[in-house]
Design a protein around this nucleic acid. Sequence first.
DNA 1: GTCCCGACAG
DNA 2: CTGTCGGGAC
Length: 304
Amino acid sequence: MSESAFSLPDDRDTVRRALVEWYEEDHRGFPWRETTDPYEILVSEVMSQQTQLERVVEAFDGFVERWPDAERLAAADRSAVVGFWSDHSLGYNNRARYLHEAAGQVMAEFDGEFPETPDELRELQGVGPYTANAVASFAFNNGNAVVDTNVKRVLHRAFDVPDDDDTFADAAAELMPAGESRTWNNAIMELGGVACTKTPACDDAECPWRAWCGAYATGDFSAPDVPTQSPFEGSRRQFRGRTVRVLGEYDELALSELGPRVRVDYTTDGEHGREWLRELLTDLEDDGLVAVDTDGETTVRLRR
DNA sequence: GTCCCGACAG
DNA sequence: CTGTCGGGAC
């Protein structure tokens, strides 16, 4: 934390209070905002990574109903968890595996007692800096300032924080009122989610920071670059996803049965044939999502 | 096409 | 530090 390359308002308490009051006045009522159970919070956070929140709600309710705690998730077959993930179109099937593994870690490494600090939470599979602070905050009110794309956009626009991860972390930490990570992190992400959106809704959402906001003053609402995704249609990602979805419908499938169900132009010796499929399956196997059995005719299933 | 409360492997 | 990981909604 050297020179401050940004300038937060002097009357920080006023700025903070304005946001907290705005949040408490009215905000979206997601189910994970009604609980402080660290397991449920973790589930919601992992689901929310790169997936629209509206789509997470249904999946979240179904998931915690089926696997109500870490103990029962850890005891579940991975195939069931990955199958659920796929059925609910949550994307990134690896995250289902992470969650399953993390539940096992809580049981085995933490004696069934959820870790409460960001550093300990980071030890769980699939939990990075964002998720560690989010769980510590929302479950235990014990986190640091979270920095996600929403927070970056808000800080960049409002207070000219430059597009640099360390600087964002410093600025976010400096702005957060000590000991209020639960409310604060919810509030600043809500701001980014409903007011300081890509197309800003400052007045409609009655943004509480209009009086201090650089972008609101200048009209320059440019935001930090978000890396553009390669097209999904026809991508390897798409075929991985299809493979997992198909395998979720069967106990076990031979390559010749799986291939045509994954892509219509599948022909054993063609451009996208057995060779291509084997390679795809090797990756899925390395990711711990499927199991390939080469005794006799090669068959595939979701990994238990 | 673009976006979405990131994390991990190489 | 860069590429990869799903898929629905707009």
